[in-house]
Design a protein around this nucleic acid. Structure first.
Length: 479
RNA sequence: CGGGAUGUAGCGCAGGUGGUAGCGCGCGUGGUUCGGGACCACGAGGCCGCAGGUUCGAAUCCUGUCAUUCCGACCA
C-alpha cells in the first residue's frame, strides 16, 4: 500500500481492474478453487483457516450471550417451507430440490435449506410450552444452498458456509433487544477482529428479509465504492410463531404466541476481508484473523547456523501462542517474500548470516512493509507489539476510507451526480415511499443500504421526490 | 434469466486460410545461487471442455451442450 513497487506480475493492479484483481488474489492466495459443480467452490486450507478463525472468535462471543449450538437437517419438506407465505415467496426462486431417494421418486420433494427458519420453527413448536422455556437461543454453523444465477468466489456462491442463530422470546421487546444485541456482536467482531468498520442500521421494508418484521444490517464499504451487506439480524415478531403455532403459557396461564429472531453471517466476510485490506501484492489480513501471523524466512539458509536459528525462532513463536510458519524451501528469498505477502501473512521475519552476526533479525509488516530490526532475545514481544499496531492501523485506515466516502445529497440532481461520480455511501433523506427506492434503483442502480441508527436531519424533503422526509438513509451501489 | 468474452499440459497463453500440438512459468533430478519472484543442464506432462455433424483427415469449419468470467436483474 505504502509501496507502489510491484513485485508480482500475476496480480492485476487494483486500479487497472478491480474485479480482476479480486479474482487474481483469491487464486494466488490459494483461498479457493473452482469445482465441477456450478457455482460451488472448494475452500482451500488458507481460505478455510480464515473461516475457522472467524468461527472460533464469533462462537465464543455468541456463547457469552447465552447462545447454544445445535445442528439441523439440511433437507426441508416442501410443505414445511410453505408455511410462512412471505418466506417461501422470498426463497422459492432459488432453492434446490431433492426429488429422488435412490431410484425412487419421493412422495414429497425436499428442498436443500436456503436458510433454516422453518426447521427451527418446526422444532420450537414442540419444545416450547411455558414461559419457563423462554428464551431459547440456538445457533448452527452449517452450509446453505441458494441457486444463484451468477456467482463470485466468497461474495456469492451456490453453496456457502454461515451461521444462523434462531431465538425465541416471550415478548416483542425481548426479541427486539436480542436482534439488536446480535447485530452489535457482529459489528464489534468486525471492528475488533476483522478490522472492518461497518455502517449499521435498519433495512427498509423493500430490502428486509422475507418474513421479517424488521431487518438490521451491517454494511461495509469496498474500495470500489460498493457496499457489501456483511451480516443481518432479523426481528420476526410473532409472524412465524403464528404460521407454525409456536405458543407458550404465560405466568397468568394464558396462551401466547412467541416472538422470534434470526441472525446470520457468512463466508462472504472473507470477501470483505480480501477487498478492504488487500493490495496489489495480494491478500493482507489483520493479525487477529490471519491463519499464519508470522512467517520466518531464512536468507542464505545453507550458511552455517541460519536454518537452526530460523527454526529456533519459529519454535519460540509457536510456544508463545503465535500462529507461525517457516519457509525453508529452496526458493529465493524474493520469491518467499512475495509468497508470504500474497497469502496475507501479517509479519515476516527475515533472518540471514548478517543478522546472525549482529544478533538480530528483521521483521516486516505486511500492511505497510515497515521494517523493524529486532534483537534475537526480544522477538516475541516485538512481534506482539507489531501485530497490535498493525491491527489498529488497519482498522484506522479502513475507517478513514469509509468516513471519507460518505457523502450527502439534498436533492435528486445532486444525488444522481454524486452516486455516479463519488464511489461510496450517499446520505439522503427519504419520504418512506417504496416508489422512491424503486426509482432510484432503476435510474442509478443504487439501493437503500440502511436507515442508520444515528439519525441526522440533513434536509426536510425526500432526496428523490421532494415530499416531506421521514428518515435519513444511506444509499449506495451494492454487491 | 438476458447480453458479451473465454475453454488447448498444474497455471498463463500461441496455433485458427483443416494434415494429428507448441511457448513461458511451474513440476522432477543434479549442480551453482540466496537481503524483493536467481541460473544452467537433463527430463516428465495434453486423444486441444464435452457430444454430435461436415471431411480421406478437425484443436481449427458447423450445431448443440457444459463450465468459467465480465455486465445487468435476484440474493448473505
Amino acid at each position: 500500500m505504502a509501496n507502489n513497487k510491484k513485485f508480482v506480475e500475476e496480480i492485476t493492479s487494483r486500479e487497472e481492474d478491480f474485479t480482476q484483481w479480486y479474482t487474481d488474489v483469491v487464486k494466488k492466495a490459494e483461498l479457493m478453487s473452482y469445482s465441477s459443480v456450478k457455482g460451488c467452490m472448494v475452500i482451500k486450507p488458507n481460505g478455510y483457516a480464515i473461516w475457522e478463525n472467524i468461527q472460533k472468535d464469533l462462537d465464543k462471543r455468541f456463547k457469552e450471550t447465552g447462545v447454544e449450538n445445535v445442528y439441523m437437517p439440511m433437507f426441508i419438506p416442501e410443505s414445511l417451507l410453505q408455511k410462512e407465505k412471505d418466506h417461501v415467496e422470498g426463497f422459492a426462486p432459488e432453492v434446490a430440490w431433492v426429488t429422488h431417494g435412490g431410484e425412487e421418486e419421493l412422495q414429497e420433494r425436499l428442498c436443500v435449506r436456503p436458510t433454516s427458519e422453518t426447521l427451527f420453527c418446526d422444532l420450537y413448536k414442540d419444545i416450547i410450552h411455558s414461559y419457563r422455556d423462554l428464551p431459547k437461543c440456538y445457533n448452527q454453523w452449517c452450509s446453505v444452498v441458494r441457486w444463484e444465477k451468477t456467482t463470485r468466489p466468497f461474495l456469492r456462491s451456490s453453496e456457502f458456509l454461515w451461521q444462523e442463530g434462531h431465538t425465541v422470546h416471550a415478548t416483542y421487546e425481548d426479541a427486539e433487544a436480542r436482534t439488536i444485541q446480535m447485530l452489535d456482536v457482529y459489528v464489534k467482531f468486525a471492528k475488533e477482529v476483522l478490522a472492518i468498520p461497518m455502517v449499521k442500521g435498519q433495512k427498509t421494508d423493500k430490502e428486509k428479509f422475507a418474513g421479517a418484521e424488521a431487518t438490521y444490517t451491517m454494511e461495509a464499504l469496498m474500495p470500489d465504492g460498493k457496499a457489501l451487506q456483511s451480516g443481518t439480524s432479523h426481528n420476526f415478531g410473532d409472524g412465524f410463531a403464528k404460521a407454525f403455532g409456536i405458543q407458550y403459557t404465560d405466568k397468568n396461564n394464558k396462551l401466547q404466541y412467541a416472538y422470534q429472531t434470526s441472525w446470520g453471517l457468512s463466508t462472504r466476510l472473507i470477501g470483505a476481508l480480501i477487498m478492504v485490506h488487500g493490495d496489489d501484492a495480494g491478500l493482507c489480513l489483520p493479525p487477529k484473523i490471519a491463519p499464519v501471523q508470522v512467517c520466518v524466512i531464512p536468507i542464505q539458509q545453507k550458511k552455517e547456523g541460519v536454518l537452526d536459528k530460523a527454526g529456533e525462532i519459529y519454535e519460540e513463536l509457536k510456544a508463545a501462542g503465535i500462529r507461525a510458519s517457516i519457509d525453508d524451501s529452496d526458493k529465493s528469498p524474493g520469491w518467499k517474500f512475495s509468497e508470504a505477502e500474497m497469502r496475507g501473512i501479517s509479519l515476516r521475519i527475515e533472518i540471514g548470516p548478517k543478522d546472525l552476526q549482529a544478533g538480530k533479525c528483521v521483521i516486516v509488516r505486511r500492511d505497510n512493509r515497515d521494517k523493524t530490526e529486532c534483537g534475537l532475545d526480544e522477538i516475541v514481544e516485538t512481534v506482539n507489539l507489531l501485530m497490535n499496531n498493525m491491527q489498529t492501523d488497519m482498522y484506522d485506515r479502513a475507517k478513514e476510507y469509509l468516513d471519507s466516502h460518505i457523502d450527502s445529497a439534498t436533492n435528486y440532481g445532486e444525488f444522481v451526480d454524486k452516486i455516479n461520480k463519488n464511489p461510496g455511501f450517499i446520505k439522503g433523506m427519504w419520504c418512506g415511499d417504496v416508489a422512491c427506492e424503486e426509482k432510484i434503483k432503476e435510474e442509478t442502480t443504487a439501493t437503500s443500504r440502511c436507515i442508520p441508527f444515528e439519525q441526522e436531519k440533513i434536509a426536510d424533503t425526500c432526496v428523490c421526490c421532494g415530499k416531506p422526509a421521514k428518515k435519513l438513509v444511506y444509499w449506495g451501489k451494492a454487491y
